[in-house]
Write a protein that binds this DNA or RNA. Structure first.
Lengths: 319, 319
DNA sequence: GCCTGGCGATACTTTGCAGGTATGAAAGGG
DNA sequence: CCCTTTCATACCTGCAAAGTATCGCCAGGC
């Protein structure tokens, strides 16, 4: 049975007349008679009563037509849904991100994306950079925002572009001795309990801190390890010690705390956006477009990485 | 788009390999490639990613395949449903019947029918014979059980067979003077208030009573008209008068009442089953089969009426 | 590095069937 | 009783689906 048979049967039922139904279908009457006859033979039951007063569906015909209508609806919906998915209007985007990214670039990007693509399901997974990288390589994520570019087995199949620079700053309670200072030195830091958000899953940050503090591993090893920047700020506000985190923290001012620069100024690993280089998903491409529009320099970096293979070509029509 | 395209796309997705999918479909590989290419061109989007590791649906492909699966399911369901409807396993039977038919033939017939055809929706409409007849002619009923064969415009297109004979009996309260009698005479009836269930919608019964009681129209005109036999019995039990009704009433014995024959014995119009002679609905034919099996003489009458045009031929396969 | 094998795409041929034209058969209506 | 209407049948044509042969491409192995 072919879709043609369904269309013909529905037209015949709608017009109640072979000649008019055939005309509406743009074919002659005999082919319609034959197709209906073929259909009835295949079904093994008469679907239409041919009377002088017109052609009417039998009970079997009514049952058939109800299903036929739904089948054709599904078929047109298949085309529509596929088109929407191809244009990235529907689908899913699994994003892994480091918590601090929620401070600066993500709110804008996710807001725009949600507004532009309301029917795309955004799956947001806050995780450390190392876990994002492995999940991305394993195909469990579509995009990742990490501190520093992903490393390790499989990372060569990822495209990574920096989407934000950062340097280290300190945060202390307003009551802290350093609270009035514009900046704190490395020596001052060594003399205080530290609060950092750098475990084994954030190798780039850990390495940066180690370089800054020199061989004095004691200061770092004794530091309180927080899971994210909000915890750093919270602990610092309690006076537990000096919090060390990305300058992105400045975007969340809060009473009872003070921020200080760290001298010497210490660059942190870039905030990096990564995705599989084979991934031509239109949803991903829409996401990248938004990231591109959000910060022009990122767009340039993206274009450099992707060369002339524009993401999104996969849904282009043939000439 | 044709159903073929859906089947091919699903096979390709299932096998992840053009060659094997084509083999499973019983065609060669190039036609499959072409059909998939045609489909993708029609949709305007690539549905499958051809990689070294295999052929995988894109996001658009996944959306398409989900709908395609449902469309094909609807199509097979269309065949199945049509077949069941053609065999009379599903559908609807609208039956109009006179209330007294519920005393004798209907309980058996409806019980069997419900057991044999559990998926047929039985629509039961208790109504007077006249209304049944007009509803049947208007196509609002499929079968009718009436007192006497339907008459009037359009009745010639109905097939009617008697399914039960009846004669008039009387019913009185146990306290009634006639209660001890085996039978009551016409003279005795004329001397008592009567209770009958014969209005203008039951012309055959009214005519029968008028013949019995002769020119003394007063007895009949003054009679209480009940809507059904149960009301006749109820009123008679209250001592309101002498109830006159079909002998079928005997099948509902009840304390506090007595039944008496009426002399002379007076035949009532036959209980008649009617349906449109053009109606070849398999559900109707199944219903008639049950009626036929329930009482052999009815079967013979049915066969005589229908001649060699067996009901149910409409769903026979061509040779 | 080159060969080889596997896979999908392409080119060309064949064929089956959808669709067109002409006509027949049956049943109402004037 | 003929004529019209309507669906079915017969036969022909052309397109497109399927088949055959081959190409191009990439990967993996010697």
């Amino acid at each position: 049975m072919e879709a043609r048979h369904l269309r013909y049967a529905l037209a015949l039922a709608a017009h109640g007349h072979f000649g008019r139904a055939a005309h509406a279908l743009g074919i002659a009457q005999p082919p319609l008679s034959k197709q209906i006859a073929d259909l009835e033979r295949e079904i093994g039951a008469r679907l239409f009563d041919r009377t002088r007063q017109g052609v009417f569906p039998t009970a079997a015909g009514e049952a058939f037509l109800a299903r036929a209508r739904r089948a054709l609806e599904e078929m047109t919906a298949a085309t529509v849904d596929a088109g929407r998915a191809a244009r990235g209007e529907t689908g899913r985007l699994r994003l892994g991100f480091i918590a601090s990214a929620l401070l600066d670039p993500l709110p804008d990007v996710l807001g725009r994306f949600g507004r532009e693509r309301p029917d795309v399901r955004l799956e947001l997974h806050e995780m450390a950079s190392g876990r994002s990288a492995t999940a991305l390589i394993a195909g469990e994520l579509d995009v990742a925002v990490t501190l520093g570019p992903p490393r390790g087995a499989g990372a060569e199949h990822l495209v990574s572009v920096p989407i934000g620079h950062d340097h280290l700053i300190a945060v202390v309670s307003s009551a802290h001795p350093y609270a009035g200072q514009a900046s704190v030195s490395v020596d001052q830091l060594r003399r205080q309990p530290l609060i950092v958000a750098a475990g084994e899953d954030e190798p780039a940050v850990t390495a940066g801190l180690r370089t800054l503090l020199g061989e004095d591993t004691a200061a770092l090893d004794g530091a309180t390890v927080a899971r994210d920047v909000h915890t750093i700020i919270g602990l610092a506000a309690c006076g537990v010690g000096v919090g060390l985190g990305p300058s992105r923290m400045l975007s969340v001012p809060r009473p009872g705390i003070r921020f200080c620069e760290v001298t010497p100024r210490t660059a942190l690993p870039d905030l990096v956006l990564s995705f599989a280089d084979r991934d031509r998903s239109p949803v991903l491409s829409a996401f990248l477009d938004i990231v591109r529009n959000n910060c022009p320099d990122v767009g340039a970096a993206l274009d450099r990485r992707l060369g002339h293979t524009r993401v999104g070509d996969s849904c282009a029509k043939q000439p």
